[in-house]
Amino acid sequence: MDTDEETYILESDKQRLNSRLVFAFFSCVIGSSFVFGVHTGVVNLPQTKIEQFLNETELHRTGHHMTQSKITLLWALIVSIWAIGGMIGGVNAGYFADKLGRKKGLLLNNILTFLAVILFGFSKLALSYEMLIVGRFIAGIQCGISTGIAPLYLSEVAPLKLRGAAGTLNQLAIVFGVLISQIIGMDFILGTDKLWPILLSFPVIAAILQLLTFSLCPESPKYLYINKNDRYAAIRALQWLRSGDSFEEELQDMQIQGESCENTEKMSICGIFTTKWLRRPIFISIIMQLSQQLSGINAVIYYSTQIFRKTAHLTQTASQFASIGVSVVNFIITAISASLVDKAGRRYLHLLGLGGMFCAACALTTSFLWEVNDKYILILSTVNIE
């Protein structure tokens, strides 16, 4: 090792969480994972207000009220087109992460947030639900890109001993965003007939915060070392992030990975599925993602207020508070998981969660099919799915 490099590597026996690392974590998730959570939960509480806007727009254009079937169709489109945009953004996230870098990719991704917010903010003024639909689509693309880049940055800047916990910060920020969006979406805050466009535009605050804070953070050391082949820049980034802790082991690990990448051919998506030794890990990864996405969690986040109101026969305000309660439980359990992931293990926690979701889904389905009008069973089963 060169003498100049030795001056950057500070000797210490421990790697710990420090203020700079916390700042980097916060700056990364505030405009990405947190915004993802806000966009996920923000349409839940003001559903009736937005449906009224759809009806008013139709009345202004044609002189006739919108049919209930068309309102339902448009509402389903407003909710689901965000996921379509997310798929498009997610597929291209890897390209932007490697082409622009993790830091620059996340910073530039905020442009999409600003575009979506402009459409949200002026949709009611322009009496255009098309602007609302396009805004949700653009927001979905932004969230898809950030979902691919943010966890990558978190894992690459975290010390080896903290990478498990750092990986859960992405999900923790998401559920916190869902919780905040539902709190400010209450009828007496921003979920009113006049203020719901401002509610949908709330992510602009997080985007501005990320632009102000993340610009001060370094690029991912792993990206600098392996992708850009800049060892000195990687050392400077590690020096900033570790704030006095040793990072020589991480440099050695990056060197090994860099050499491995040089001897490995780049593989397409189709190549991943056709390569024999990759099939099992890819299959496991897909099943784990499907087990989460098909658990019913998305339906709960999108429609919990409506479920509580129509099935448990709660009032509008009580349904909103019940939805917030569900999100509070979700946030608490995610925070607990973040502290246990390196101790209890990923597999055990995932299986435990799947077992709870299975029991809750059975109870929820039973209450729907047999019209069990017990609001406590409904609320508990919905909470357990979260």
Rank of each mutant, 00 (worst) to 15 (best):
L108G: 00
S268E: 11
K104D: 13
L364D: 05
I235R: 14
R231N: 10
D253W: 10
L154N: 02
C261Y: 13
N109G: 01
E11T: 11
T72C: 06
F25Y: 12
E371D: 13
T57E: 09
I205L: 05
S33E: 08
G244W: 13
D98K: 12
L190H: 03
S181A: 15
W370C: 01
L340Y: 03
P281E: 11
D342V: 02
I88V: 12
L169M: 10
A206Q: 06
Y223C: 05
A318P: 06
K70I: 09
Y8C: 00
T72N: 14
W75A: 00
E219I: 10
K124V: 02
N170M: 11
Y129H: 07
V383K: 01
T382P: 02
F25I: 00
I297M: 09
V329R: 01
F247N: 01
A158Y: 04
Y223W: 14
G90Y: 06
H313W: 13
T57C: 07
L10Y: 12
T3I: 14
A299D: 10
T40V: 02
V38C: 03
I184S: 07
V157W: 08
N227Y: 13
W82R: 01
L190D: 05
H60S: 10
S295L: 07
W370Y: 14
Q239A: 14
E130S: 13
L154P: 04
H64S: 14
E6A: 12
F273I: 10
E56R: 11
L251P: 00
I269P: 02
H313M: 12
M1A: 14
G85P: 02
P197E: 02
L352D: 10
F53S: 09
P197K: 02
L241Y: 06
C359F: 14
D13M: 11
I336G: 09
R280I: 09
L108V: 01
K375E: 15
W75E: 01
R309E: 15
F23G: 03
L378Y: 08
N330A: 05
N110H: 08
L162I: 04
T213N: 05
F34L: 06
I307H: 03
T213L: 09
L354D: 07
K310G: 12
E11G: 06
Y303Q: 00
V175M: 06
L169R: 04
F114P: 00
M87L: 15
A166V: 02
L200E: 03
P281I: 06
T334A: 10
T40Q: 02
T67C: 05
V328P: 03
R20W: 11
G258R: 10
G135E: 00
Q142Y: 15
D374V: 04
I332M: 13
R136G: 02
F273V: 08
E156N: 03
V326K: 02
D4Q: 10
V326H: 03
Q182P: 01
